[in-house]
């Protein structure tokens, strides 16, 4: 049996007396598309920051890509990709410069970087627009470029923080085709989203409420378990039980 690529036990983060993440336990297998759902303020971002090695857990343990997130965050960081909707690429740099920067950050050699960069631009049909500033690209294309850049160093696992926020439905669909393709290549995708139709595309989803994981299974089984027609109903049913305000 293969090892899970993400495995947490009772992972907890407290800020003073406030428990942002409350003893979450989950495991994600390689090649899986894992949907990490929750209302704003449920603790998703904090949990994700811990998994990425950005934030030290207060209690509990977690292993990501074979390394302990509390003790070896640097090793974890080398093996993951990360993309967020809030910020992904530098608008004032050109397409080519962004690719070069993130290749450089992840320590790709010059030739390797040039080869993968060309390949990436070709795939996105951006070769002609290599010298265009990212700020001038349409949002959808920007997000696709950001996703590809996050995969540039071929990490076994990529974290996507609301990657399709503000993007039109057509582009979202093609974006998810890219996610599927990455997963088919064996890359594990850990994704947060507020779009419940996207939750349906995930292999498995977890739903966080008040810092705890209240549900974790495949979308089909969750719908059956809660007698709901869509993930939207499942989500709203659970989110209503929240005691913490989302503000």
């Amino acid at each position: 049996m293969t090892e899970p690529i993400i495995e947490t036990r009772e992972l907890t983060k407290r800020f003073g007396s406030f428990t942002a993440v409350d003893r979450i336990t989950l495991s994600v297998m390689p090649g899986e598309i894992f949907g990490f759902l929750g209302a704003n303020g449920a603790g998703k971002t904090t949990a994700m920051r811990m998994l990425c090695g950005l934030s030290r857990p207060t209690a509990g343990t977690g292993r990501v890509a074979g390394y302990d997130i509390g003790r070896q965050p640097e090793a974890v960081k080398r093996r993951i990709g990360y993309m967020s909707q809030r910020f992904s690429l530098y608008d004032d740099l050109t397409v080519g410069e962004n690719v070069r920067l993130f290749g450089g950050i992840y320590g790709l050699g010059r030739h390797e970087l040039a080869r993968r960069g060309d390949e990436l631009l070709q795939r996105l049909d951006l070769t002609d627009r290599r010298r265009v500033r990212v700020g001038a690209l349409p949002l959808g294309l920007k997000q696709k470029l950001a996703f590809s850049v996050a995969l540039l160093h071929r990490p076994p696992l990529v974290f996507l923080d609301e990657p399709t926020g503000g993007v039109d439905p057509v582009t979202r669909r093609t974006f998810w085709e890219m996610i599927d393709a990455a997963a088919a290549d064996g890359t594990t995708v850990f994704v947060t989203t507020h779009y419940m139709d996207e939750a349906e595309y995930c292999h498995r989803v977890s739903i966080m409420v008040d810092g705890q994981i209240r549900a974790l299974d495949t979308p089909d089984r969750l719908k059956r378990q809660y007698g709901a027609a869509s993930m939207e109903e499942v989500f709203l049913g659970l989110a209503e039980t929240a005691k913490r305000s989302s503000e």
């Binding site: 990425c52 950005l54 960081k77 990360y82 967020s84 910020f87």
Partner: peptide, 14 residues
Amino acid sequence: ETGSLDLLLVSPVS
């Protein structure tokens, strides 16, 4: 402000 600092912090760069 733009959130890019997180992107840098999540990279293996110290």
